[in-house]
Design a protein around this nucleic acid. Structure first.
Lengths: 96, 96
DNA sequence: TCGTCATATCGCGAATCGTCAATATGTCTC
DNA sequence: GAGACATATTGACGATTCGCGATATGACGA
């Protein structure tokens, strides 16, 4: 729970999570890739952040259980962990 | 929205918000005071933090729209802003 | 096995946060 | 008005975070 709030306390990371709701909104994204997610470089371009920063931020979102990473070849694709996000929202409602 | 996440990214502040769900759980709290909230000193004692820290943290929660402050005499009473909290939870569900 | 590309990790300075003690403000009582 | 008390504000300082560039790792193709 602590990791979730820490991850979401940064605007860029919140933004990434929202962007990933619409993988097709990333330029060049193929319909076949929607299931697996969006690669780091595409997210980086959109965020306007450095490569290392983007990689770290995505790692934080992953540790918080908000996204899932899948390595395929030299690319790492990130997508939302919808089931876990829904669970977290319910917990939020219960706790607060 | 930014202020909300920043406020909740701290465990002590999250704790305060949860504690305020049960004003009567604070020692010495009178039934008549439940409506108006809990005073800073009582919250401070429970949190085990310094007086200035407690005051600042409550101010942050207030700026985030999570609690409401009422000054009565030399005391300031804090209580949850339930209506706004409910609204925020709905927004959360929409955005994430 | 090289070189290249995508991503991850490391090391850093600048900015912000966490927390406190000291001090200021406001309110009540005498 | 002078204390005494509750709270707010300020100043300080170590700890953490932000974001970067440099470098390491891992995968692919020639």
């Amino acid at each position: 729970m602590l990791t979730v709030f820490r991850a979401l306390s940064n605007p860029a990371r919140r933004q990434m999570l929202v962007w990933l709701k619409e993988p097709m909104s990333f330029p060049g994204q193929e319909p076949d890739d929607v299931e697996i997610g969006v690669c780091v470089t595409d997210i980086q371009r959109r965020a306007g952040l450095g490569q290392s920063t983007t990689s770290q931020y995505l790692a934080m979102l992953r540790q918080a259980g908000l996204v899932v990473a899948t390595r395929r070849g030299k690319w790492t694709y990130y997508r939302r962990d919808e089931a876990n996000i829904a669970r977290l929202l319910e917990t939020l409602r219960d706790v607060f």
